[in-house]
């Protein structure tokens, strides 16, 4: 019976050893809190930047990553996740850091080129081999019997782009007849049997679990799925018109001030705009903001009529409040109103 008492000190010693072992690293570290589909891009970019920083500044920098649905990630940063930089899916989520947590100045989007968007993307349609449901444009998604896969606009930044892309198309297609727009966009989202919390979850639902006929996806996710998941299992349908998705980046001022990482955090974001990084960005299927790099990859990024959120909806703040706020248009059309 005495034997059973002896493991307690042993466990305590093991625990202490683990704690001490975990707290050894002392180099400069950054935390990049990002959204779902950028995992592969930033894994490679971090290495590229670390090399650049080592060569120019002679300092070792380690960048840690955290990924999840964009809205959820912004919420975590507001709740105290110590992000030095955020690289989120949409300006509205970065804006939340200014509005709800006072973590960054309200003018954050003017601090870096291209509205703080080193890369853009758009929303396309991913269908199964041979396009069995004959999907050509947004209108086909509203047809009865078509199963649509999209994440939930309530939690996923990508899904909000999906919704606005469909809405923008419908506005053009029905000459601004709001009742008709509501009806068709509502039908598209009611055709979604499941709405995952993030874009990556939706891709898993569509590609791995084989649910759905068409997935509304980031162009980068669609290209990734087409190129690396199963040979020719998926095809990309570029709709007649889509939205220019602008995922912005920002330094989180209060955190970097506290940690003293302001300089390296800003350099980390600025380096995204250099030709080397832009090339990497294009390789990871995002549309580079540098026109020269974009031209080199013209075959991959097909020309499509793109509208911006400012043009159609008067900016993110307005779109966020009108469409995705409590009881907003999204909730209304989903309920068929």
């Amino acid at each position: 019976m005495k034997r059973s008492n002896r493991w307690i000190p042993r466990l305590a010693v093991a625990g202490a050893a683990l704690l001490l072992g975990g707290a050894a690293a002392a180099d400069e570290t950054l935390l990049n809190v990002s959204y779902d589909p950028t995992r592969e891009l930033y894994a490679e970019y971090n290495a590229l930047f670390a090399k650049h920083w080592q060569e120019t500044q002679g300092e070792v920098v380690t960048v840690h990553q955290s990924h999840g649905g964009s809205g959820k990630q912004a919420r975590a940063v507001v709740d105290g996740l110590e992000a030095d930089v955020v690289t989120l899916a949409l300006a509205g989520d970065v804006q939340a850091l200014a509005d709800r947590g006072n973590l960054i100045p309200k003018t954050w989007q003017k601090r870096l080129p291209h509205n703080s968007c080193p890369y853009t993307s758009t929303i396309v349609l991913l269908v199964r081999k041979g396009n069995p449901k004959g999907i050509q444009d947004w209108g086909d998604l509203a047809k009865p019997g078509v199963v649509v896969i999209t994440p939930n606009p309530k939690t996923s930044g990508g899904a909000r782009w999906n919704f606005l892309a469909a809405w923008g198309w419908a506005q053009g297609a029905f000459g601004g007849d709001e009742a008709k727009v509501r009806e068709v966009v509502g039908a598209i989202f009611r055709n979604a049997p499941v709405m995952d919390t993030g874009a990556r979850g939706s891709l898993t639902t569509f590609a791995e679990r084989g649910i759905g006929d068409v997935m509304i996806a980031w162009e980068n996710e669609a290209l990734l799925a087409r190129n690396s998941l199963g040979d020719g299992e998926f095809e990309i349908v570029v709709p007649s018109v889509s939205i220019l998705a602008e995922p912005p980046v920002s330094v989180v001022d209060t955190v970097t001030r506290r940690k003293g990482t302001g300089a390296v955090a800003e350099a980390y974001l600025r380096y995204l705009y250099t030709p080397e990084a832009q090339e990497l960005i294009a390789r990871h299927h995002y549309r580079p903001s540098d026109p020269a790099v974009l031209a080199r990859h013209a075959a991959k990024f097909r020309n499509v009529e793109l509208f911006t959120i400012e043009e159609k909806f008067g900016g993110w703040q307005e779109a966020q409040a009108r469409f995705f706020g409590e009881g907003g248009v999204f909730a209304q059309v989903l309920a068929g109103r």
Binding site: A76, V78, D79, G80, L81, E82, R100, G101
Partner: peptide
């Protein structure tokens, strides 16, 4: 625990001011 120890939570601001990380950490 987020509500208690988060930056917007009851104890969060005090913890942050004293450099103690509870939530989003071990």
């Amino acid at each position: 625990f987020v509500l208690l120890f988060g930056a917007q939570g009851v104890l969060g601001p005090w913890l942050q001011a004293h450099g103690v990380r509870v939530i989003f950490a071990v």
